[in-house]
């Protein structure tokens, strides 16, 4: 049982929660995630990235978007409530340029939608390791940006906002500024986190320039420890388990189309569960 210490609504359907998990807070590193269960007996296990951690207070911060039944149940919980389980930290930590043997350089972080949240600790670590960090944030409209101030604090004037409708920053897609930076030869490495389609197009955008591009994959998971194979993807023609071999992979090697298809495996059931949960929320006046 893990207590919710703080809850904030960041936008219409994005929430931030600080949850008690002292051991995870102590050992987690940028890029790692936890598996969360809202209730024990019939609950689902869902992966969420550790967006931040406070080892002294023994808490981790999760930022999530309500997309289906479980994330909606989580959003219903309030400060002081408990969630059934937090398991982690899972996955391999991000290999931070400047700490991993490579010289610090010019790194572009591309965060799409909620993907900005998991990007935050990575961008922080990249900056701390001496890289020049550019952050490109994309959203459908201005109201959907999360953590803009936190990201601005890291990137300063190297923060680029992009919206589909032009309601904030540039109108267009995150791949537009990304391509321009690559064309000007100003990029040593790219990290992309966001919807799979966005990551796929980031990979396509950087490929012609031969710029190293890393993507953090968000497949369906159950155990998160390498036991079920449900999170498998094909990378460079080889089957990999996202929970233990990832979540980050060379974006140019990922079979994106296969991954996109696999993420739709349970869509009909998920939609039914979401409607059910929505009706419950409506009934509860939320």
């Amino acid at each position: 049982m893990n207590k919710i210490i703080r809850k904030r609504r960041l936008s219409e359907n994005v929430f931030e929660m600080s949850v008690e998990a002292p051991l995870v807070a102590r050992s987690r590193r940028a890029g790692q995630f936890v598996i969360v269960m809202v209730d024990e007996e019939f609950g689902e296990r869902i992966p969420l990235t550790i967006a931040d951690a406070d080892p002294e207070a023994g808490t981790i911060t999760l930022i999530f978007q309500t997309v289906g039944a479980t994330t909606m149940k989580l959003a219903k919980k309030n400060e002081g409530d408990f969630i059934a389980a937090v398991l982690g930290p899972l996955g391999k930590p991000t290999s931070i340029r400047g700490e991993n043997g490579e010289k610090p350089g010019r790194v572009v972080c591309v965060g799409g939608g909620i993907g900005v949240a998991p990007m935050h600790p990575i961008a922080q670590a990249l900056k701390a390791a001496g890289n020049e960090v550019t952050i490109i944030m994309g959203a459908r409209n201005a109201g959907l940006f999360v953590m803009k101030d936190e990201m601005a604090a890291i990137a300063g004037d190297r923060l680029v906002l992009v919206t589909d409708d032009g309601s904030s920053g540039r109108k267009g897609l995150v791949t537009d500024p990304l391509k321009e930076l690559c064309e000007r030869g100003e990029v040593d490495e790219v990290i992309a986190i966001g919807p799979p389609v966005m990551m796929k197009f980031c990979a396509l955008a950087t490929k012609p320039f031969g710029v190293k591009t890393v993507a953090s994959l968000n497949t369906i998971m159950i155990d998160g420890t390498g036991m079920c194979g449900g999170c498998r993807v094909s990378v460079g023609g080889k089957t990999k388990f996202v929970c233990v071999d990832g979540p980050e992979f060379d974006a140019h090697q990922v079979d994106w189309d296969l991954m996109l298809k696999r993420m739709g495996a349970f869509r009909p059931q998920e939609i039914a569960a979401k409607e059910h949960e929505c009706n419950l929320l409506k009934a509860a006046g939320l």
Binding site: I222, D223, M227, C228, G229, G230, R232, V233, S234, T239, L258, K261, R262, G264, A265
Partner: peptide, 16 residues
């Protein structure tokens, strides 16, 4: 075809 939707390890199938 082992990564198609509907292909499961027994572990996943039974764990679910």
């Amino acid at each position: 075809g082992e990564n198609l939707n509907g292909v499961f390890s027994a572990n996943e199938y039974l764990t679910r």
